[in-house]
Design a protein around this nucleic acid. Structure first.
Lengths: 316, 316
DNA sequence: GCCCTCTGTGTAAACGATTACATATTTGGG
DNA sequence: CCCAAATATGTAATCGTTTACACAGAGGGC
């Protein structure tokens, strides 16, 4: 592997000058500059990032800690993150971890020294004590239970989105609206449930426990829950699924049971995945700007990094 | 940040001994071992990976170069990769890049010195000269045009899968089977098309150009293509979409046109995404073990790394 | 009792970059 | 014409590890 010394030798210059040219630091004559650029290019020199980070104590890498995410979401959030990261000359070190506290701590430890900051997605409601994670480096919580004002955090407007969708349903005249809930310990799920109940109450409807069914964000769960809802006496006229996968599962169950959608039963989802509009009938769904969310998380993180973690925390 | 020196000082030992304990290299007395472990733990010491990689010239990190991928695929492939990587103590540095040659080369350059090897997904048919990528480090091509026997490569069994599906359709009696093709310059798409034609020929059917419609793997493309197919004189009785998204778009178009599926028109897809079976009727689709594919790619890469890139190349 | 082999530990030289400081040369103001 | 400031370059310390080598003491075979 060719090092800066090799380049210096070949160009008959000192390593300091080579370094100055390559980092555009300090004054160098135009001629030397050209020469060194040419030599470095020809020799295909690439600085050793380890050596660099050793002396500068910056890695130009961001850690991303993901839970066991499936489907669309994952891709989109990473796309957004990578875009912003690349624009700022940063790389992305991605790792999946158990959503519990131990898993996250282990993962963060493993990233120590490799990254300048971490975006943590820890949707698990129980992972309470994330607070005392070894936060010498900036951390941004994404779609996780916000922790006071000590850590930057960014969440989907779950409650608001759910509330608006359910209010839309009530405004259409629905009185009995069921919900297929997301995973029990999931933060997003809990917030969507909250929005659902809030909307009902504001419409003067008392939430009915028999219309709140368990789910885990999979098509299968949506399917099962929908079948059960059909068996409920005093059947609902609308189903709000906490995500699109479950909504699609529910649609499938309704179809098989010969229910007319939306005449006999309306169905709404959350996430607005691309194929929602290719369902029959098109699934109305709460839009989530996933990609943008990733981008903003990285933006927030970079802000924390440039301010050496000594900045006003945000919570959005 | 606490360094190995701090630990050594605190434990009243030399840095060499501390290093030996932490790397389980060389002989150390049990007592010293315990002591150092305790001190290191208490001080929350984490080795500086840069310094380590400087001297060992290993980063314990794998690069992953992804094209502009959407949806399920992305998530799954990364899941598989990360699993295998973590099991072997490796991290994943992920980057999206333009699929063309320049984009890939730039991205690989940027990763130089940060990774011990790279998995490259470059589905673009035109990115021919990937051969001369700066391959001092091991490279595995995933779902890309294989390059002779000079680079390890791993692909989906596109041709075989497509062929089997189309053969299944002919065996059901279909004579006029249309295909909605994937992106024009995409390797997977080209292979699926090849399999489709192969199956037709083996069934004694001459591929009809008017039944081969352009597509780009999106629902919208499937929708449009299906509408056009309905307008073809001597209409097909089956549609094979090169992926599930397009199949779903096509289903939507057929439904809106009042076609009975599968009675009047059969539809098949490729990828077997989870919700395929929740379509109406359930979409039959060629299964692709995406997660496993990622795992195998990383396995192959790790093999190349341990053999210092001096191993028999594989092409699967 | 001597030498050889182990075991346990320490010393110091790498690894490849950045950068403070030193030095040499040029420029320019008075 | 001289001195200060600016420009261009080099020297060497430094970052945090690993590891070859050195060394001391213990144990054992003869």
């Amino acid at each position: 592997m060719v090092t800066i010394k090799d380049v210096a030798r070949e160009a008959k210059m000192s390593v300091a000058t080579v370094s100055r040219v390559l980092n555009a630091s300090g004054p160098v004559s135009d001629e030397t500059q050209r020469l060194i650029r040419e030599v470095a290019g020809r020799m295909r020199y690439v600085p050793h990032s380890g050596a660099r980070s050793l002396i500068t104590s910056r890695t130009e890498t961001l850690g991303v800690l993901l839970p066991d995410l499936y489907g669309e979401f994952f891709s989109e959030v990473i796309r957004g993150m990578d875009d912003t990261a690349q624009k700022n000359g940063f790389h992305l070190l991605i790792s999946r971890a158990y959503a519990d506290r131990h898993g996250i701590e282990t993962a963060i430890r493993a990233m120590r020294g490799r990254v300048d900051g971490v975006v943590v997605m820890s949707p698990d409601l129980d992972a309470k004590s994330l607070l005392d994670l070894p936060s010498t480096i900036p951390v941004v919580l994404l779609c996780s239970v916000p922790r006071g004002n000590e850590i930057d955090s960014l969440t989907i407007q779950n409650c608001r989105g759910a509330k608006e969708m359910v209010t839309h349903l009530t405004s259409l005249g629905h009185k009995r609206i069921a919900i297929i809930k997301g995973s029990a310990r999931n933060y997003d799920a809990a917030e969507r449930l909250r929005g659902y109940r809030m909307a009902l109450r504001e419409a003067g409807i008392t939430p009915d426990p028999s219309l709140e069914r368990e789910g885990d964000f999979t098509e299968a769960a949506g399917y099962t829950a929908a079948l059960k809802l059909l068996a409920v006496k005093n059947r609902p006229t609308a189903i709000f699924a906490a995500n699109d996968s479950m909504a699609i599962g529910a649609l499938s169950a309704l179809r098989q049971s010969g229910m007319a959608v939306p005449e006999e039963m309306a169905v709404a989802g959350f996430d607005d995945i691309p194929l929602a509009r290719y369902m029959d009938p098109p699934l109305s769904s709460v839009h989530v700007p996933i990609c943008e969310l990733g981008a903003r998380a990285v933006g927030l993180l970079l802000h924390g990094i440039t301010h050496k973690n000594d900045h006003a925390r945000r919570r959005e």
